[in-house]
Amino acid sequence: MSERDHETRDTLSSQYRSDVPVWNRLSYPTQRKIRTTGLYGILSVILVTILFPLYWMFITSVRPQREVQTRNPTVLPTELTLENYESLFLVSDFPLYLQNSVTVVIGVVIVTTTLATLGGYGLTRFNIPYQNTFARGILFGYMFPSILLAIPMYILWSDIGLINSYIGLIFAETALALPFSLWIMWKFFQTVPESLEESARVSGASRFRTMVDIALPIAKPGIVAVGIFSFAISWNEYTLPRILMPDADSYVITTGIQAFQQQNTVMWTEIMGATFLASLPAFLFVYAFQKYLLAGFDPTDIG
């Protein structure tokens, strides 16, 4: 009897076998292996696409000039040298550009985080007419491309004498970074329960003390995220410094790198060296604070 059952099942199975897709006929371990291999395959292609230019940038910067300007470039360098970096720091104006960039970035980060934190706190804690409309409207300001703002800014800045000044560029770049930063902080403070601050107030803390002791520490991931965001905006910004800092002495890194190109020859090795150095801080910054960055963009994950 059981033998007959077995036989029937077998025939039924074989009868429907052709209907089962090939994929489902594979065992689960095989399916998993294929899926993993496929995923890693796609990942490697993406990685190579992203990493190769970085590799090329670095490798060009440590090659001697003649190995760069050749008809038969090699993927692996045959000779390594630091002479490009030497000329970058000792001959060119690169240190000046770096100094300009760092000054402006520090300014933008400080001004943006301060304003965004205070503004975000105010937008959630005080009764302002049309509060929500205002808060959402701020994000609209982020939609403007910097080139659209740059021309009016140039006219305005030159009227009040802020062209080629750190302050002028700091304000201009803050205008780029602030809308989104304010929006992040607005969202973040919404997740800090007001009863925490009320509890502190009943315990005797003034409103300001309450903000410093309670609201700010809880909003720290948001503040760090805003700091990183404004750093990235300012460090990478090209259009505004190009227009608002036209003097060669006022070049920041982004505009300065371009200057290497505007002389008789294109100095590829110096360009790549400068680019490599310029990308380092961004990388280190994000790497060091990535824990906060993720928490900062996801305000639901606190406490």
Binding site: S195, L196, E198, S199, A200, V202, I218
Partner: peptide, 28 residues
């Protein structure tokens, strides 16, 4: 509120999440 010298308990407890319990209790 801060000048009335009261103590209040809230429905959602309102302990400060970034402070340890001893700091929470000692905060006032």
């Amino acid at each position: 509120a801060e000048k009335r010298g009261l103590a209040m308990m809230f429905q959602n407890i309102a302990l400060y999440p970034h402070m340890s319990i001893i700091d929470n209790i000692a905060y006032p």
